[in-house]
Computed example of a mutant assay.
Amino acid sequence: MFKWLPKLLVAAALAGASLAQPALAATGERWSQEEANAWYAKQPWLVGSNYIPANAINQLEMWQAETFDPKRIDLELGWAQDMGMNTMRVFLHDMAWHQDPKGFKRRLETFLQISAKHGIKPMLVLFDSCWDPDPKLGPQRPPIPGVHNSGWVQGPGTAALDDPKQHARLEAYVKDIVGTYAKDDRVLAWDVWNEPDNEGGGSGFYQPRESKHKFDRVAELLPQVFAWARTQKPTQPLTSGLWHNPDWNKLEGLNRVERAQVELSDVISFHTYAWPEDFAQRVQELQVYGRPLLCTEYLARGAGSTIDGVLPVAKKLNVGMYNWGFVDGKTQTRFPWDSWERPYTQKPPTLWFHDLLHGDGKPYRAREIEIIRALSRAPKNEVPAL
């Protein structure tokens, strides 16, 4: 199996070898390679999804008091536990915290209790640069028929990103949330900013409302977010995932945001929605940094990124994995990205793009669930006969 994998790639993954090391962060508080690899050695092989309950269209609908639904979350995380998942990547939102800090943390505590009940340790995401740049509190708009992720919102939005006076609020949010759970074993890790230099999404739909200075604002803020989180001395690692650029193993070829992601992350995370061979190539590029690797987004069936193809390779290489989408619901991520240009209102695609389960818990493809379960039960680096 996997005869096309370079021998060096497999050997480096198994040994946790370091081929090079980037410059350390100026704070001096970033975990050493040894500390990061020691932490990872204590973890099971990490496998889960990017999680939002089926009845929430975005982060605000998931976390606001009026729509927070612990019963639904409990049901869905029970399905995750049954298929062998042990982690989830979960997006928070600064505005939901700012609206009601104590209430927000009560709901987060409830979520962590439910997760722990099901043996799931979430990675919590603090900020996100994808999709709608103008988030608003209160009732969220309904999904656009036939369109992929039509209600997801950025955080911070353009207004907060462009207003230096609001950055103190962002700092307070990071320090409060990370500080509250800095020593909590129920939290696996902190993803401080999802795709920070993303220009939004929606095939240009949101571009007119994006900050004209977004890249520069994010490049200034991202190192600060890492620093704010580190003041709380978390026992969990910090990360921010690389997601574009054709070659990640040369720091001089990365932009300012990407360099910060590599140089400030305790563990290296990345996104790839491509074929298994491309996934393996990305892993090889990132192994030069000598740190644990987590693929925090994958699974785009129509683009060649599948459970069947990618997940066994990741298990062999000891890369933690989070597919995009768990239960089909209001995010509508079963529709492909091109639905922004051609909504699937007449005939839904036969092939789901993301997501694993129907809203009632029935698998989209039972074989995928069997693979996840078998891989999660096998020892680290061991791929059983599938």
Rank of each mutant, 00 (worst) to 15 (best):
S265R: 00
N86R: 10
E370W: 03
I177G: 01
Q59W: 01
G103R: 08
T235L: 08
I372P: 04
G204E: 06
Y322W: 15
H354W: 09
M88R: 02
K42T: 12
L254Y: 11
L222N: 03
T180M: 04
D278Q: 13
I369S: 01
P156R: 09
W340Q: 03
F270S: 01
W97C: 02
P142A: 10
E368W: 15
G359Y: 07
V319M: 00
V225Y: 04
D184W: 11
Y364F: 12
V47R: 08
I369Y: 03
K105G: 01
T331L: 09
E382S: 04
E252D: 15
D355W: 03
W275E: 13
I52N: 03
D162H: 12
E34A: 14
P336D: 06
S18I: 14
L92C: 05
F205W: 14
A366L: 05
T235N: 10
P292G: 00
F2E: 08
F68V: 13
D162F: 09
G28E: 05
Q261F: 06
G146A: 07
E263T: 15
I177L: 08
D132P: 03
T87F: 14
Q332K: 11
L24M: 12
P237D: 09
A41S: 13
G201T: 05
M1K: 07
G302Y: 06
Y173F: 15
F68P: 10
I177T: 14
W243P: 02
R141M: 06
R301G: 04
R373C: 02
S376Y: 06
L251Q: 08
S265V: 00
G157V: 06
T231H: 05
T333I: 14
I369G: 02
K102W: 02
E263P: 01
V313G: 03
I144Q: 08
G320C: 00
E29P: 02
L238C: 04
V225T: 11
I144S: 00
G290V: 14
F104I: 05
P223G: 02
Q81D: 06
R291Q: 04
A172Q: 07
D266R: 12
A168K: 13
D191E: 15
K315V: 12
L75Q: 15
Q346E: 14
R334V: 13
P133M: 04
A378P: 08
G361Q: 04
D132F: 07
H148S: 04
D197S: 09
A116N: 08
D176Y: 03
Q140Y: 05
M62H: 14
E382N: 02
S129E: 06
L24G: 13
K7I: 11
G309K: 05
A11P: 00
E263V: 06
H167P: 09
T87Q: 12
